[in-house]
Design a protein around this nucleic acid. Sequence first.
DNA 1: CGTTCATGTTCTGCCGCACAACAAATTCAG
DNA 2: CTGAATTTGTTGTGCGGCAGAACATGAACG
Lengths: 412, 412
Amino acid sequence: MSAQRRTGLGTNQEAVRRHNLGTLLRHVHAAGQLSRAELTTLMGLNRSTIAGLVGELEALGVAEHASPSGSARQGAGRPSAGVRIADAGPFVIAVDLGVDKAVVARVGLGGRIHRRAQAPVVGGGEAWQVGASVASLIRTVVEDAPAASPLVGIGISVPGLVRRSDGLVRLAPNLEWHDVSFGGIVLAALGLDVPVSLGNDADLGALAEHTRGACVGVDDLIYVSGNVGVGAGVIIGGHLLRGYGGYAGEVGHLRFNPTGRPCHCGNRGCWETEVGAHAIAEAIHCPPDRVAQLDEVLADFGKPSPELRTTGTALGHGLASIVNTFNPQTVVLGGYFTSLYQLVSTEVSRGLADLALPAPLESVTLTLPGLGGDSPLLGAAEIALEPLLVDPVAALDAALDDVHARVAMKAG
Amino acid sequence: MSAQRRTGLGTNQEAVRRHNLGTLLRHVHAAGQLSRAELTTLMGLNRSTIAGLVGELEALGVAEHASPSGSARQGAGRPSAGVRIADAGPFVIAVDLGVDKAVVARVGLGGRIHRRAQAPVVGGGEAWQVGASVASLIRTVVEDAPAASPLVGIGISVPGLVRRSDGLVRLAPNLEWHDVSFGGIVLAALGLDVPVSLGNDADLGALAEHTRGACVGVDDLIYVSGNVGVGAGVIIGGHLLRGYGGYAGEVGHLRFNPTGRPCHCGNRGCWETEVGAHAIAEAIHCPPDRVAQLDEVLADFGKPSPELRTTGTALGHGLASIVNTFNPQTVVLGGYFTSLYQLVSTEVSRGLADLALPAPLESVTLTLPGLGGDSPLLGAAEIALEPLLVDPVAALDAALDDVHARVAMKAG
DNA sequence: CGTTCATGTTCTGCCGCACAACAAATTCAG
DNA sequence: CTGAATTTGTTGTGCGGCAGAACATGAACG
C-alpha cells in the first residue's frame, strides 16, 4: 500500500531494470504526460536509456507516443517527443465504501476515472449483501472496458480499521462490521481471482491528495477525515504511516477533555465526542437520519451558529495536537470537515494557533481536498495500481486479461 | 539522519555498487560479525558478488577477515569465513548534551564505544562555553585513536528542537538556547571541518534502540523520553519520523487536561504538566536542585507514594494517545521514565489499557531501553556513521585522515 | 579414509547503462 | 530565406557489475 522501501536486500541488475521501468511509469502516471527530455533530467539517466525504457513500456501497451506538448520548454533545439499513458492500457477497479453509499469506478493509469457507478448502502447491512451490491457495480463499470485492457487489481476504501497484513476489516463502526474479510467476499461474489488491496479511507485520501490532489510535491501531510468517526491519514517523508498493525492515525480518540462526554469507545471526552458527526449534528439540530449526509447539510448551512463556532475551535484545538505530533507541511480537511471549515475557518485557524507550538505552526497550512470527495476513491485506485508502478512486467503478467468475457459470463 | 529512501531517481549501475557496498557494511555494522554465507542469503546476491564486495571493504580498511564464528550454522560443509568491523577502522565522535552534563565518546562501526569522557554543563550556559567544553572532551577522546583511523563525522544529541534542513537548534529549553548553530560552534572551537549532524535526543534514542537496543527487528517503535521536558522519537516502518521541519514527536504538549495547570508553552494542562520533571519533583518532594538528576532520585526511591502512582497513571493515559496515533509495536521508556516505570509499572500499564483502542493495544509492548542511558549517545553515533553506510567510498573520501595530528596541533 | 556437503575462488557471459557520433527538428540571427 | 546554433532522437560501442558454472577447499559423517 505504501511505496516500496529499501530493505536490507542487495540490488542485482534485473532489479535495476524493474525499478527504472516502474519509476518511469510512476512519473508518467503522476504527470499525465511528459517529454523524454524531462524524463532524462527527472531520473538522471541517459537519453538512450530512457529511449529503451519508453520503448519497453510502449511494447507492453502501458504507455504511448504523444506529440510534443506545447507546455514544455520552448526554445531552440529539436522538440522532445511526449510519453503518455496508453488509452486502452491496464486499469483497476476502485471502490469507496462510504457512510451511506458505495462508489465504484474503473480507473486507468494517470488516475483517470473511465466510468463510475454507485449504489446506496444501508448502515448495519450484512457484509455479503454489500459485497454483492459492489460486485454488481463492478460488472457495470467493467462492461465497456476495452477488450485488450487487462485488470490489474481491485482497491477498496473502508471507513474503519484495516489490518495491514491481510486486509481484514477489523472494525467498521458505521457498517457495524467486526473482522470481515471484505476483499474475499467481493471476489467470491464476482467469481474472479485478482489482487485486492484494502485501506482505511483517511489513509487512502491522504495518498490520493499526495499523488494528484492538493498536496502534489508535499511529502509531509495529514488528511483529517470527518466521516461519522474521525480519522487521519498521515504521509510523512512521502510514505504512508501505517503502524505495526495498520491502525495508525486513530486521532478520533485522542484525549481531549477528560471531563467531557462519554465516547462509544468507552472513554470520556475523546476528540470525536466534540467534532464527530453526532456532536456536530446535535450542535446544528440536524435530524438523525441526515447525519450520514452531514457534509451536504453543512454545505447548505447559512450563517454559522455559536455552537458551530465552538466546534470549529475544538477542531482547531485537536489539530494542534496533531500538528505538534507530526509537524506536517499541510493538513487537508476531508469529509464533512471540508464544509465545516468553509463555515468556520477563522475559529479553526485560531484554535490551531492557540495550542500549537511555534516551530511546527509556522510552516503548516490548512487546505481543502483537491479531489473533493473523490480522494478515498482515487486513493483506492492508487493502492491497486501500486504493483504496476513497482514492477510493470510482473504486474501485467499477474493481471487478468480477458476481464470482459469472464465478468460477463459470471453475470449471465 | 533517517535511512535513505528511494526518490524518483533512476538507478544506474555505479549506484548499484554503492548501494550494495553500503548495505553489506550496514549488515556487518548491525550484527557485529557475519559469515559470508549469511550475507549471501541476507542480501540475495551471489557468492562471487559477496566475495567482491567484502574484498573491497577490506581494502578500504573498514572490514576485516574473521575466523568462522562458532555461533553460525553447524553441520556438514565448509565453514564460511567471517566478516567483522576492522579494529582500526573509521570512527565518529558522538556527543550527548544532557540536562546537567555533556558526554562525548569515540565510537567505531558496530556501535563500539572506544573511549568516553564527560563534563558538567551548567543550565543556561552560553553556547560557546558549552561548545568549548565539548571540544575539549573531543580532544580527549581522540587522543588515543589509532593513527590510521579516519574521522567520518560528529553526531550531536540535543535536548530540544533541531531544524532538519541545517541542524540549527531552534529551541533547547533546559539550556535556554534559541536558534543556536551548535554544530558550527563546536567545529570552530575544534578548528576542524568535518560533517556534523545534530538530532533531537528522543529521535536519536529511538534510532539507537532500533539499531542495537531493545528494538532490534522492530520497525515500529516509539522512544518516549523523560528529560526535563517530554519528547518522543518515532520510528515507523523502519524510518525515523521527522516531519517537515524536523520537529515531529513533540508529545509533551499534547492536550491532556484543559483545566489543568499552566504550561510554560502558554497553554494549560499539557501532558508535560503532569509527567514532566517538575511535576514529578513536586509529587515526590524532590529538592529543586536535584530535578536535573531526577532519574537517580527516582532510582533510589523506595515504595511509591500515591502521588507517584497518579503520575504513573497519567503517563499511561498519555501513552494511550500516542499508541492510538502511531500504532507502534514497542514503546521504550527512556530518561527518567525508566526509573519511574520500574516503580509504578502497574499504574502505567493500567492507564494505557484504560484509554487505548483495542486494536493498537493488543500488539503493543512497553519496555525499557536496551542501552540504558546511552541511547541518545549511540543514536548520535548512528547519524554520524550514516553516510558511511550509504556510500562507504564517498564517505571515506570525505573523512578526515590525520585527525590525531590536527587535533593535537590545535590543542597545543 | 572416502563420501557428502556447503562454501570460497576463478573465469566466462550476459545485462543494462553510459558515451560518442550522427541524424533530425526546431529556433534564431542576419 | 538561409545557415548556424541548439537540443533531442537514434545507433553502435564499451564498460561495469552481477550471475552462473566449474573447480578447489575444508569440515562433518559413516
